[in-house]
Design a protein around this nucleic acid. Structure first.
Lengths: 115, 115
DNA sequence: CATTTATATAATCATTTACTTATATATAAA
DNA sequence: TTTATATATAAGTAAATGATTATATAAATG
């Protein structure tokens, strides 16, 4: 592991806390593969739109995800240029490939035209 | 990384949260090298004894550290047999070797006879 | 332009968190 | 066996967290 990706203990504590919510952790795992729009998260997580929106806002405010607008939709993806990319990958790599919750989410995924 | 060390997203979120406090994160980094007694932590962190004691209790309750009693002292060390050992190392490996807070702590370290 | 759709924001609230002060326990020493 | 030392536990509290409901904004559509 490249030393240049390492951060202060204070920063690691901060980013670790941001990722320590189950919903945000799985959002990060999802966007590490591809981009998703807000409505897709709402469907997959079966959570309210404001709740998803607030989680995304937190992830964005700490620089972990990027937002791009296309039409009426906002797409979120992993910010691979983030200072935190090292700790982000370190954590999501620890999640089992067979994680039930993640597999459930993927199975609920629908195309963006998600009315 | 051995797949057998990976955990569910729920477990990763939980352990990550336990480690997301700056004090607990540094306690874990310290005990990953050697054991410390409670009074040493109190001196090094310049925090109240109950506060340190409560952090250690949380780390122990999640199985991240082990306690051994010797005389009037209780020593804490990393539980290397923990299910969480993978995520623990993944996170502490992300802390810079030059972390100021960590270096400060080490400089304040005194022998156990710390009255 | 009016309406629908996608998303964000604001206000509120219950729960959790990490500290404090006070007290209990358990071992060591006098 | 009293006293000191090391640590844990309990109770209280301010701040942070993650949800909810209600409302605002902004783009698409009729």
């Amino acid at each position: 592991m490249n030393q240049s990706y390492r951060l202060s203990s204070e920063e690691i504590a901060t980013y670790t806390k941001v990722m320590s919510d189950p919903t945000r952790l799985l959002i990060i795992k999802l966007v590490s593969k591809k981009e998703y729009c807000v409505c897709q998260f709402v469907e997959m997580f079966e959570m309210s739109q404001p709740s998803i929106s607030q989680h995304l806002k937190k992830l964005k405010s700490y620089g972990l995800v990027e937002e791009t607008r296309r039409g009426q939709w906002r797409f979120y993806s992993l910010n691979t240029a983030s200072d935190a990319i090292g700790i982000v990958h370190a954590i999501i790599n620890q999640i089992s490939d067979q994680d039930e919750r993640y597999i459930e989410l993927i199975n609920k995924e629908r195309p963006v035209d998600c009315g």
